[in-house]
Design a protein around this nucleic acid. Structure first.
Lengths: 166, 166
DNA sequence: ACCATTTATGTAATCAGTTACGGATATGTC
DNA sequence: GACATATCCGTAACTGATTACATAAATGGT
């Protein structure tokens, strides 16, 4: 091993500071997703991390439509649509047209889905605790990200750049 | 407009807390990337935000190999390889085999690349300032993300989960 | 010099999200 | 009731990253 595992590297990346933030966020996200995925694999459960937000919303028992979920989770409806197919294919979720509005497709956990929810509850719980622990160790990174989102909403990057340079 | 643009939504997402962190980071990253992209388009410059880290490394004048860049920027060498092709296709970067090690391909800005670097310098500068401003407004979110990376390196998510639940 | 192993790079396949667009249903106005 | 418009959802194409695999060059022990 000729150089430290990543130290000089990391510092260099950090020196780019804010400019490279986007990429760093992406990589961090990929990393946590991958790690979570491995946890399901270890347990031999046919469940994918990217299903979690939808699955978790439905766990409450309240049926929701595709767009409801998209709005709540801040993703495109297409994304939800794809996750829905996957969850239905696994038999974890069922859907039917809304009686009052035929355009809406209402999703709910199947019996199998509810059983899996119960089975995975301890894991979800552990995941949640681990994430909370992680966040605490990082000095409430979530709050910082909240503030970042707020700041961007208040004034988008483009306008900030314009203000700093015609 | 039947409900506030995103308020109840945001709070709900936040309530998921750490568990949904991965997705939120991804979305935030996508957003900043898109906004930055628009800035180049506005100026009619054929430049993409994802080239920036590589381009910026080479701006110093020091030639670097694909793997050098990958190590420094913490991305896969494949990613660098693809960016290299794009930058060469645009004529901004040139490459040649290392004289001492034929496996290595050494990259450097072309004259056109250096000209663009000079032309975009004010924009890069403004971007940097905007990002610094943003970061300050968010109470140093970058530091929080650094701490998150550190914490994950210290003890990966998987082990944390195991510790919270057999 | 020779062969095994490691390193640097590239190509192909995959993945999880997006935008673009189209079809079906609701809604509001005449 | 009919037509214009808006909303819900889905399919297709694109994006930007990754892993898996392949190739070429260097290195080291014999």
């Amino acid at each position: 091993m000729e150089k430290a595992p990543g130290e000089p590297v990391r510092d260099t990346v950090r020196a780019y500071g804010a400019a490279a933030l986007g990429g760093r966020l992406r990589r961090l996200s990929d990393r946590t997703d991958r790690e979570a995925k491995a946890l399901y694999e270890e347990r031999g459960v046919a469940f994918e991390q990217r299903w979690f937000p939808v699955f978790n919303c439905l766990r409450s028992g309240e049926p929701m439509s595709v767009t409801d979920l998209a709005d709540r989770l801040q993703v495109s409806h297409v994304s939800i649509s794809v996750i829905r197919s996957a969850l239905e294919k696994e038999g974890l979720v069922g859907s039917r047209a809304d009686e009052r509005d035929g355009r809406r497709r209402v999703l709910a956990l199947t019996d199998k889905g509810m059983a899996l929810a119960r089975q995975l509850a301890p894991l979800f719980d552990a995941l949640d605790k681990a994430a909370i622990e992680l966040n605490a160790e990082a000095g409430d990174a979530i709050a910082a990200i909240d503030r970042l989102e707020d700041a961007l909403e208040r004034k988008p990057l483009s306008r900030r750049v314009e203000d700093h340079q015609g």
